[in-house]
């Protein structure tokens, strides 16, 4: 496991660089005068109306759900794809290529039916 120790530290490498750079910027940066508009949100010169933390379109939520389904599918397929050649070259004669391919196609077909359903329902339409 000790070989993977650098990964743990490199997780913080970017954070160290970012914090360092922003600290340097904070120290070196020339503060401009605190005029009236300086701390307002940028909106092309208009005064902001209300907060921007508003309820947002639900369409994004449906895409997030679809993403979950397909990304989890990809993760499920990773182990079998990585070992497909090993499985076929293995010593079990009852595992023939036809059976493996049929299994995988059934798995993908279930997901495709889900995609087809959401397509037909109009979830993939963005308005």
């Amino acid at each position: 496991m000790i070989e993977y120790l650098p990964l743990l530290f490199i997780l913080f490498l970017g954070a160290i660089i970012a914090i360092g750079a922003m600290a340097v910027g904070k120290i070196l940066g020339f503060a401009s005068k605190n005029t009236k508009g300086k701390f307002d949100p940028y909106e092309c010169g208009m005064a902001t109306i209300g907060s921007s933390h508003v309820q947002f379109k639900v369409g994004y939520y449906i895409f997030a759900l679809l993403f979950l389904v397909f990304d989890v599918e990809a993760l499920f397929l990773f182990p079998i794809c990585a070992n497909l050649k090993t499985i076929l070259a293995g010593s079990q004669p009852e595992i023939t290529p036809a059976i493996v391919v049929a299994d995988l196609i059934i798995f993908v077909a279930i997901l495709v039916s889900g995609l087809a359903y959401s397509w037909k329902k109009g979830f993939l339409k963005w308005e």
Binding site: G14, A15, I17, G29
Partner: peptide, 23 residues
């Protein structure tokens, strides 16, 4: 350039985002 946050931002999350993005 000056590093500053406009008054209406969520300061902690506002500064967390550029840190996460380079991680």
């Amino acid at each position: 350039k000056e590093v500053y946050a406009p008054k209406s931002v969520q300061t902690f999350l506002y500064y967390l985002a550029p840190i996460l993005v380079v991680t």
